[in-house]
Design a protein around this nucleic acid. Structure first.
Lengths: 116, 116
DNA sequence: CTGTATCCCGTCTGATACTG
DNA sequence: CAGTATCAGACGGGATACAG
């Protein structure tokens, strides 16, 4: 397995950073932590996301193997999104970053104000 | 200390994600891990970054208190960038994500190809 | 219910050239 | 050496409306 040269433009870490760096992926992943959810459930829980963007996010995550999309042939239609093992394994690393954020965000904001 | 509601648009984690999510901040932080560096050192080590963007990145990180910018009144000019304690404390969490990326990137890429 | 289609704007990023 | 100025293109993201 490659060790990943972070200074290589083809760096593997880029793939992950692009994913967690976007506005909604992390929230989707955290939302799905406790089990499958339907489209509208996600949409309402994650306030402010439009259907288009939510769809884009879900498709990208599905494509990366982070979650699965299961369509039930019913009326009305039902679609469930579930984290894969890969998706669940990302939850830990993300939590570490999230905890750092929560611990230090006030300090960062203080720095920003002082800076002006 | 706040626990941070990740579903709040004002969520503190956003601040951090915006920072580590951008294209160069993480590389700068990793570069500076082993000590201060000068502008051109960073520029050459991080291949592909233009001076404008590198400046933007460094200014933003300085503003957030992740690094300090020290100008030496010399000819030719010398400017050194050094991580603050806050910046160094971010290195751990970032490493966790980076390690995850390195371990799983091949799996992600495989998923992407299968998806097409 | 679960999306898609369109339009649009702001930001992010880069190329290139220039300055103290 | 360490940037700044300017221009331009790509793209993420959002508003709104509509479809299967």
């Amino acid at each position: 397995m490659d060790t990943g040269d972070v200074f290589d433009p083809q760096c593997p870490t880029r793939v992950v950073l692009d994913r967690i760096g976007d506005k909604w992926s992390m929230l989707v992943l955290l939302s799905l932590r406790d089990g499958p959810m339907r489209f509208t459930q996600l949409r309402t829980r994650i306030g402010g996301v439009t259907p288009k963007v939510l769809t884009q996010t879900l498709r990208a995550m599905e494509q990366d193997g982070l979650l699965t999309r299961k369509v039930f042939a019913e009326v009305p239609p039902r679609v469930e999104y579930t984290l894969t093992d890969l998706g669940r394994s990302l939850h830990g690393p993300l939590s570490v970053v999230a905890e750092w954020a929560e611990r230090h965000v006030s300090e960062i904001l203080r720095c920003r104000e002082k800076f002006s």
